[in-house]
Amino acid sequence: MSDTAPPFVAAPVRRKSAHGESLGVRIALIAVSLAFLLLFLALPLASVFVEASAKGWEAYRAAITEPDAQAAIRLTLLVAAIAVPFNIVVGVAAAWAIAKFEFRGKNLLISLIDLPFSVSPVIAGLVFVLLFGAQGYFGPWLQAHDIKIVFAVPGLILATIFVTFPFVARELIPHMQSLGTADEEAALTLGASPWRVFFRVTLPNVKWSLFYGVLLCNARAMGEFGAVAVVSGKIRGLTNTMPLHIEILYNEYMGAAAFAVASLLAGLALVTLALKTFLEWRFGDEIAASRRH
């Protein structure tokens, strides 16, 4: 239980490192990784911003403020604003149940939580169409009660929830499991109510994992394409989220406009990354401590 991170020690030049690779091998490995990152991450990201600004600032502004684009941005924010909190609540509950209690079917539940990651998003979308579409199982009933799910906002939200569900739970489960139940038991013997135990002990113990999960969940919720594309119906101004809007623009040869909107999503990714890095730098000790204990 050391309280300090191992200090970074520069290996003396011309000596083999602890792992036995020579300096040359290490340089080669680093070069390969850097080249890969440059080619597959930095370059595409840069090109998004370059293309977005190809027709100048005015065109960029127009592409973003145009009503359909505005509707897409609002819809994306709305979907994320519902899907993310929902997944936080359910994800925390599921992680809590799995980490703190013994029950039958626990392993099944753990596998089920991972399901959205192993199923293609398109299939996930199709399942919702199959369930709630006009020809689906619940279609007639929904129509009779005048409820629209598929090709409407509720479908988008459902699909997004499904696809992004694992992020929060997967971050929390291993962390909560490693913490065990001793802290909670201590709080209970001290007379705390279950709510107080949860909000003052359990949640603070995992706040960094939770925050990571939420960050990733949000990035994915705003960027999700496959599942959303299937259930959306792509009605402009109504059921188009930002990723769908970008695709439509691109297919209509409006490259600059497409990249302009895309740059917003890319910006979100960068902000997420920056936030994550900042937190790791600023609270690195605490994060490490809360994970280690």
Binding site: A182, D183, A186, A187, G191, A192, R200, N205, A289, S290
Partner: peptide, 24 residues
């Protein structure tokens, strides 16, 4: 109850740990 590995609340300081029972 004093637990084998103490089970102190890591996100609270010493004073908050000790006061936890009274505040509960």
């Amino acid at each position: 109850f004093v637990f084998q590995h103490y089970a102190l609340f890591k996100t609270m300081n010493v004073a908050e740990n000790i006061a936890f029972g009274l505040r509960s």
